[in-house]
Design a protein around this nucleic acid. Sequence first.
DNA 1: CTGTGACTCTTAGTCCGTA
DNA 2: CTACGGACTAAGAGTCACA
Lengths: 90, 90
Amino acid sequence: MQKRKTLENRDPLLQAVATRIRALREGKGIAQEVFAYEAGIDRSYYGGIERGKYSPTAINLAKIAVALDVEVGELFPGREELVVLLTSHN
Amino acid sequence: MQKRKTLENRDPLLQAVATRIRALREGKGIAQEVFAYEAGIDRSYYGGIERGKYSPTAINLAKIAVALDVEVGELFPGREELVVLLTSHN
DNA sequence: CTGTGACTCTTAGTCCGTA
DNA sequence: CTACGGACTAAGAGTCACA
């Protein structure tokens, strides 16, 4: 995938997405544990997503967006920012 | 992941995303080969995405959206349709 | 120009447990 | 309630060759 080191993923794009997801979940005042269950994904893995550790697939992004009751697009930064995030590193 | 059959991915959500991506690319009148190169991903792998074979990760979705010059959200169906697609199968 | 099979390697994703 | 680690399985990432 993103030829990355096995430990500690610090991809800025993932961090941006992670932060948005966490903010939306906390906005609903619901715990990771409960939210992950509702979204139908593992709590441990979901926690990793909020920490920017994983690059969730289209299907899981859709599950999360639905559970958060928002559009998938709201989980990502805008086009302009994406360009920066994608070119700022690898 | 999606506790699904090992061969032939026919997830309706992936098909929906795949169709949108293909339509957008063709709208630009550009070949898979050229587009994949611009997006920085392998031609063969990219072809698989357009066939709904893979559930691309957040990072690849971002690369594709940027190359298509659209928002990531435009690659996904709206919330209402997502609910249907996510519950219509597994 | 695109679809696929085959293959290798890495990561997504699950499950358990502990601080 | 959240972070994180280990162990493991399934699937994505990436490349080639050929129809």
